[in-house]
């Protein structure tokens, strides 16, 4: 009851921080998709790239998030603003599921279908856009879904470097030993994650090839 009271009293700030949170997650996911899908395509088509690309993405994944924020701090332009830094860090974490699922999705296309397409005289580009990507789409989307859900959680840590988002409440609550404040950050974040999971999952099922 107390929590609801707090939320209604501070709904302006809750909305503001939720908005910041969405900005961090949304822009980092978009960047990860723009970079990750091409990298996934490259590693699916040219096996030499598979190990370095997926290996690098894997290594990034193992860096603790706070440490990654710290490493990026001295980077020019990026380190100047906390939200830039947070977005870059979240992008780097989101890359692995996007790259891996793009790779898996494209490699999973029935070889007979690819061969038929190639035999019909489709160019590599036509094969990619007419056949491989549409057929891999639901797998790619499930990678994006994982990336978003993980990012929503990770983005709370961005508050530690002053990038805002729902983590603000959580860190403030931790400092003040106030569970209500912690929940005021954690519950909207959890709702965001569930909503993203549900809606992207629905889209993924819609796009799944028969």
């Amino acid at each position: 009851m107390n929590l609801l009271h707090f939320l209604s009293q501070n709904h302006q700030q809750v909305l503001e921080l939720t908005g910041e949170h969405l900005w961090l997650v949304g822009s980092s996911t978009l960047l990860a998709v723009l970079v990750g899908i091409p990298l996934g395509i490259v590693s699916a088509h040219w096996p030499v790239w598979n190990r370095p690309v997926l290996g690098t993405a894997n290594v990034i994944q193992t860096i603790p998030s706070l440490a990654l924020f710290g490493f990026l701090l001295p980077v020019p332009w990026i380190g100047e603003r906390a939200d830039r830094l947070a977005i870059l860090a979240l992008t780097l974490y989101a890359l692995l599921p996007v790259i891996r699922n793009t790779y898996t999705g494209i490699r999973g296309v029935d070889p007979a279908v690819v061969e038929a397409g190639r035999g019909m005289g489709l160019t590599d580009g036509q094969l990619l856009f007419h056949v491989e990507l549409p057929l891999a789409l639901s797998v790619i989307l499930s990678g994006v879904r994982v990336a978003v859900v993980v990012s929503v959680g990770l983005a709370t840590i961005a508050a530690a470097i002053g990038a805002g988002g729902l983590g603000e409440f959580i860190f403030r609550g931790l400092a003040m030993v106030n569970n209500q404040l912690i929940l005021a950050g954690a519950i909207p974040a959890a709702i965001l994650a569930l909503a993203a999971d549900f809606s992207l999952g629905w889209l993924e099922r819609r796009l799944r090839p028969r």
Binding site: D110, A112, V113, V114, E115, A116, G117, R118, G119, M120, G121, L122, T123, H130, V131, P134, L135, P209, R210
Partner: peptide, 20 residues
């Protein structure tokens, strides 16, 4: 190679129809 293939019909056992 693209023009060559477009002038040749190709049918395989697995058919390879585009499922989407």
């Amino acid at each position: 190679v693209i023009q060559l293939r477009r002038g040749i019909g190709y049918v395989i056992q697995e058919v390879g129809l585009f499922p989407h």
